[in-house]
């Protein structure tokens, strides 16, 4: 009896030992930095099944939220670097060090795929007394501090866009904080705030339905989903310095993961990002596909971090100076 049991354990050991040569030989844990139902969650849950098909393994997705995503990132960074823990994240970690939110960021990870980016748009409530970006600037100049801008806290997209505007065309507004762009856009419809810098995908359905109006696209060209809205560079070419800029989504794995495992993950997600159903969903939410990995992904992340960190620094929002953290000036 005892011998048989021992044999079984041994057999199991041999079996698992042999199988570990083939990655993946067990479920992979996928940590999503943001809550269920949000943009990061939707993108992660949509791409994963297509990547799984190529990978030949199952990824169990979990939302680990809190601390602007830092809790999830730390959990992924604390796991063994064996490729069995993936991090699905957005742009926020690149600002953790600057904002004093944590000691770890994407430099502790290898980008598997930088999937897509969003474009920022400036929207206003329908009865706001301005219809374009220049009109808004004039109104704010005439009524300092009276216009309420929605915000999602320092480091969030609205704060970066507001800092961008401030650096070229200084404005005096009141920033009212919300927990995310969803609640802030709701508040915009109810008149609790006047203007909201948001990502196109979150605002587009409300613009189409005429519940809010778009002032300008924060990009160098019009967005295919909203061809009639003029980009900000049409009236203010000085913004070209920062653009294109936008929040992004990516899949990451801890640094130190074996190269063959990383390669397998990169190939799987690159294939998944080309799936037709996935592309259709991303188009519906007005995201621009990037599908970057390796050096391209590193370059993208580096440029994003440098632009944004210095914007926040110049706006006086940064807690730690970017040059001290080794983030080059753009």
């Amino acid at each position: 009896m005892k011998k048989a049991w021992l044999g079984a354990v041994l057999a199991l050991g041999v079996m698992t030992g042999a199988a570990s040569a083939q990655y993946p030989n067990k479920e992979i844990q996928g940590i999503i930095q943001w809550g269920a139902g949000g943009s990061t969650d939707v993108v992660s849950r949509s791409i994963t099944p297509h990547a799984e098909a190529v990978l030949g393994g199952k990824v169990v997705l979990q939302n680990v939220t809190g601390g602007v995503g830092a809790i999830g990132l730390n959990k992924a960074a604390d796991a063994a670097g064996d490729g069995y823990t993936l991090l699905y994240g957005a742009e926020n970690p690149l600002l953790y060090k600057v904002m004093g939110l944590g000691q770890k960021d994407y430099s502790d990870f290898v980008p598997v795929n930088v999937i897509a980016r969003g474009t920022a748009i400036l929207v206003a409530r329908n009865d706001a007394p301005f219809n374009t970006f220049p009109e808004m600037l004039a109104y704010i100049k005439a009524n300092p501090r009276a216009v309420k801008f929605g915000s999602t806290g320092p480091g969030g997209l609205p704060s970066v866009i507001t800092a961008m505007i401030n650096s070229k065309t200084p404005i005096q507004v009141t920033a009212v904080p919300y927990d995310g762009d969803g609640p802030a856009l709701t508040a915009l419809q109810g008149g609790a705030i006047d203007v909201m810098p948001a990502v196109v995908g979150a605002a587009i359905e409300n613009i189409r339905a005429g519940r809010i109006k778009a002032l300008t696209i924060m990009d160098t060209a019009a967005h295919p989903a909203l061809p009639n809205i003029k980009p900000i560079t049409d009236t203010h070419p000085e913004f070209k310095q920062y653009l294109p800029w936008g929040p992004f989504f990516g899949v990451f794995v801890k640094k130190g993961t074996p190269d063959d495992v990383v390669k397998k993950l990169v190939d799987s997600f690159a294939a998944g990002a080309k799936n037709a159903d996935f592309l259709k969903m991303m188009e519906g939410r007005a995201f621009t596909m990037l599908n970057l990995s390796g050096k391209d992904a590193d370059a993208f992340l580096g440029k994003w971090q440098s632009t944004t960190a210095w914007l926040l620094q110049d706006a006086g929002m940064a807690k730690n100076a970017p040059d001290k953290l080794g983030i080059p000036k753009p």
């Binding site: 199991l12 079996m15 698992t16 199988a19 030989n25 067990k26 479920e27 844990q29 199952k58 169990v60 979990q62 069995y84």
Partner: peptide
């Protein structure tokens, strides 16, 4: 519900994959 509890000394993930 696919809740991954701390695995510790029993490699249940691999056993489960094997059953799968």
């Amino acid at each position: 519900f696919a809740v991954l509890m701390p695995e510790g000394i029993v490699p249940e993930g691999q056993i489960l994959a094997w059953f799968g």
